[in-house]
Design a binder for these strands. Structure first.
Lengths: 233, 233
DNA sequence: AAGTGGTCTAGACCACTTG
DNA sequence: AAGTGGTCTAGACCACTTG
């Protein structure tokens, strides 16, 4: 299974930027130059440049060219942090209980979210995280078994899914959706809270260079958890 | 100056979804059908579908087709967007009702948040924002009267606070705190929802080069609003 | 088997910026 | 005038899902 040509070109450009060969504001090869170098049509080279522009790595200007974008100082805002780390940074004790770790058949929706074929087997893990004996987050995670075939063989009492995935499939991209929901009866019991409590629910999709790695649903009681971000312009 | 063909097709699809002709999860015309209907090449029809998918309006599945996505208002955590703009980008109608616009004496906490002396007079505005006649966000805002002395003389039926502040005190920095809360009885009435509903509450502090400009509390019903972010590493 | 989306080609004309 | 990106065409082959 080889990567599509436009993906290969994207990877090449990312690499050049990462190693510093193409610094900020430097001109990157034009569509025609890339098409020549990689022996593809202009449309394919264009797609690579276009997608990297949408991702914020490049900026384009008709007539002028394509340039490496200014790196955003966005690392601190909604970082993808490991919950165990977050808790220990607060000087508290992290622990977790593994509820489930199994293989499931994806339904249509999950197939789209993980970008796998229907009826593929994927991994599902459910872990409840504690901060000083207080349940703080329920982590429900679906993992692409093609990209991370040994996910279900890990011991999640010694490593968090986030830590393991960071090792075997480094993050290149992520999306978040944040919602407020009412705790279900079941959730309320797990968190040890009374029935009508608001919860923050973050749905996080993560990518490595190979594709979608996992889809996680992170739910936390609203009165014990919040998200922060700091933007600098 | 006419719109490009792919934009016209996008508009047409948006319209169908808006007027309810194509409800959630319904199948939209295939690339080939659209190409035929609009007398364009398949690549052009495809671009329209592709961009709407990236924007979250459609979902696609190879072999199966393209479908209208589950609709939910979404706002980005990474940019400070004007709510009126956000709503009109979704093709909906924004309106607002000004509840209050007055001068108040800050208490100790607000003095710290706005970085002004205690007992300074600051402006307070309270505005309820609607998306198509549905109340979607309550904006409670405290504004530094030293940096923005004419805030209380604006007509907030023609300009949003965000738009006005962007003009007179451009953003240089912002912090967000996101929490899930239970709607108070008063809030529930304003939003037209039943009592135990979860709400997303964003507390936003904004700076211009001169200092803290404003502190805003943005509250939205959880079932009608969500925040999103897209990170690239 | 027919339809769908995913990738790709080799051209074209255009608006725009740069030397 | 030459190069660049923006739009568009009319094809092609493929993997996949559906009846």
């Amino acid at each position: 299974m080889t990567l599509p040509k436009f993906s290969q070109i994207k990877q090449h450009i990312c690499q050049q930027i990462e190693v510093g060969a193409w610094p900020q504001h430097s001109k990157v090869p034009s569509e025609n130059e890339l098409a020549g170098q990689f022996s593809v049509s202009r449309m394919t080279a264009r797609r690579a440049l276009q997608e990297l522009t949408e991702q914020g790595l490049l900026v384009r200007s008709q007539g002028a060219g394509t340039f490496v974008a200014t790196f955003k100082s966005q690392s601190s805002l909604l970082e993808i942090k490991n919950i165990a780390e977050e808790i220990s940074e607060r000087g508290h004790q992290h622990s977790s209980v593994l509820h489930q770790l199994k293989t499931i058949n994806v339904d249509a929706e999950m197939a789209i979210l993980l970008n796998v074929k229907q009826d593929t087997q994927v991994f599902y893990s459910e872990i409840l995280h504690f901060e000083n004996d207080q349940a703080i987050q329920l982590e429900q995670r679906f993992v692409n078994s093609v990209l991370v075939p040994e996910y279900n063989q890990q011991d999640f009492s010694v490593i968090t899914p986030h830590e393991y995935l960071s090792m075997v499939a480094p993050l290149t991209e992520a999306t978040h959706e944040v919602e407020a929901i009412l705790a279900s009866a079941e959730l309320a019991i797990q968190f040890g809270i009374k029935a009508p409590t608001a919860c923050l629910q973050v749905k996080r999709r993560t990518w490595s260079s190979q594709g979608v790695v996992s889809f996680a649903i992170l739910t936390s009681p609203g009165d014990k958890y919040r998200l922060g971000s700091h933007l600098v312009f």
